[in-house]
């Protein structure tokens, strides 16, 4: 990780703004993920060095919270909401359909790195359940057909 990397410079500023305090670790990890898309080993080691925290602590926190991604996500990301309301309304069937269509499991990316399939616990859009997020778009009252078509559309665009 080069110090010339502008993302790294921004991250350094965020750490400096927080006075390199231990208590700001979550905020710093959030920012790092926002900048880099995910938290790889090198990045976590770098943060642990900057904050003067043992790597075990930084890795412990990063792996504890499900929001932090430790693997590089695919170019396009499909996230299924698996909250109660979505589950009751059939979100699982939609996820199974995506898994079958692209031959991947939840939490995985396709071998070409084009598509990731993730699960989130609840996005709080329960009245429009089931909801599936394709890239940044929330699909409300989703069906298998709509979701598969949307994925095809975003994949076609790359």
């Amino acid at each position: 990780m080069s110090k010339d990397d502008s993302r790294r410079v921004i991250l350094e500023k965020v750490m400096r703004d927080h006075g390199y305090q231990e208590s700001a670790l979550l905020e710093i990890l959030h920012k790092a993920q926002e900048l880099y898309g995910y938290l790889d080993k090198e990045l976590l080691m770098d943060i642990s060095g900057s904050l003067n925290l043992p790597p075990s602590h930084v890795f412990g926190v990063a792996t504890f919270y499900s929001f932090f991604k430790l693997k590089r996500p695919g170019q396009h990301v499909v996230t299924g909401c698996m909250g109660t309301a979505c589950y009751v309304k059939g979100a699982d069937e939609i996820m199974q359909a995506v898994e079958r269509e692209y031959n991947i499991k939840r939490g995985e990316a396709t071998p070409d790195g084009k598509l990731s399939l993730l699960v989130t616990r609840c996005i709080g859009a329960c009245a429009m359940a089931p909801t599936i997020i394709v890239d940044d778009e929330v699909i409300a009252k989703a069906t298998k057909e709509i979701v598969l078509q949307k994925i095809k559309q975003v994949l076609g665009g790359t």
Partner: peptide
């Protein structure tokens, strides 16, 4: 503001304190 990161247990009162302090909840 402090941001959670997807941990149900962080709603528990001693766990939320750990999380605000930058630790595992």
């Amino acid at each position: 503001l402090r941001f959670g990161a997807g941990a149900f247990v962080a709603g528990e009162e001693t766990a939320i304190l750990a999380s605000v302090e930058g630790c595992r909840a």
